[in-house]
């Protein structure tokens, strides 16, 4: 795979076509964000609409985002809710995926079918029963409600990723541990879990992004402003800012920044996770 000749074999037509695709990809992914950032520097976006460059760089919106909007509180909420739910679901799924990947038992097919099927159950169809359940458990309008929902949703993808990772661990390791006198739980916790950590981490990063960005349930089960997650906060913006467009744009930039920074940090890891074939058909 290292030094070969294929560079020469790319024909001009293919090359041009590829560049068109690349240009399109750049255009689509950059225009909205660049425009948003540019607009956030305009003192009055109404006076300089569209692609007009800002006259001078105005940072008032950013200052008020941190001072008046208490945006850090919402980051804290999101961090806590997404973090705890990911830990819970990873623990849960890495346990069951291990059993399904490595042991034979009655009903194994049903269990895996069940877990796979969650990928195709439309979450919005469950709106009312889940809302009702949250109310009956007396956790409506609490962070616990969202943690529960997030820990239970998205089972399928995590399950597939982690199960595939377990599948690549040689069986001899387990057998050796068993011969050394480890019980089942010990074998899993001491031997298998540490080896599978990269796979579990992959699933955790994917789940964390999903939960961080989730809007539907976040806007459904939490109404107290102080408990809101970042995406839910967005729906209050149109009324909160009214005609203060500079403030609106700045707040939006601040809100989309953390996932982008997180992505830049985890970028290599993330790309490998998805394109490394961790999730397959």
């Amino acid at each position: 795979m290292k030094k070969q000749k294929p560079i020469k074999t790319i024909s001009t037509a293919t090359r041009i076509f590829t560049y068109i695709c690349l240009a399109w990809a750049l255009l689509v992914s950059l225009v909205p964000i660049v425009w948003l950032v540019m607009s956030s520097f305009k003192e009055d976006p109404l006076a300089r609409p569209g692609f007009m460059l800002p006259e001078s760089i105005c940072l008032d919106g950013y200052i008020s985002t941190f001072r008046d909007l208490h945006v850090m509180r919402y980051f804290g909420n999101s961090m806590w809710i997404a973090g705890v739910s990911v830990i819970v679901s990873m623990l849960m799924i890495s346990m069951s995926a291990y059993v399904v990947a490595r042991m034979e038992f009655k009903g194994k097919k049903i269990v895996s079918m069940m877990l796979y099927s969650t990928m195709f159950i439309p979450a919005t169809a469950l709106t009312y029963p889940v809302y009702n359940l949250v109310n009956r458990l007396n956790i409506y309008d609490t962070r616990a409600a969202l943690i529960m929902i997030y820990a239970c949703s998205g089972i399928a993808v995590s399950f597939i990723v982690i199960r595939n990772y377990y599948g690549n661990i040689p069986k001899e390791l387990e057998e050796a541990a068993r011969i050394d006198g480890c019980g089942y739980v010990q074998t899993w916790w001491r031997v298998i879990f540490p080896i599978a950590r990269p796979g579990i981490l992959t699933a955790a990063v994917l789940a964390f992004f999903n939960n961080w960005n989730e809007y539907y349930w976040a806007s459904l089960v939490i109404i107290d402003r102080n408990k809101m997650t970042v995406p839910a906060l967005l729906s209050t913006f149109t009324t909160a800012f009214r005609t203060n467009y500079n403030g609106l744009f700045s707040a939006m930039v601040v809100i989309i920044l953390p996932p982008i920074i997180l992505y830049c940090v985890f970028n290599k890891f993330f790309v490998e996770a998805l394109s490394g074939g961790a999730v397959k058909g």
Binding site: A25, L26, V28, S29, L30, P32, I33, L36, F209, W212, N213, E214, Y215, V230, P231, A232, L234, S235, F237, M252, I255, I256, P259, I260, L262, Y263, N267, F270, V271
Partner: peptide, 17 residues
């Protein structure tokens, strides 16, 4: 790497943008 960025932002924020 750039092309993935919009997918890292929540669809709520994208809708708002």
């Amino acid at each position: 790497n750039i092309y993935i960025i919009p997918n890292m932002i929540s669809s709520a924020a994208m809708g708002m943008i």
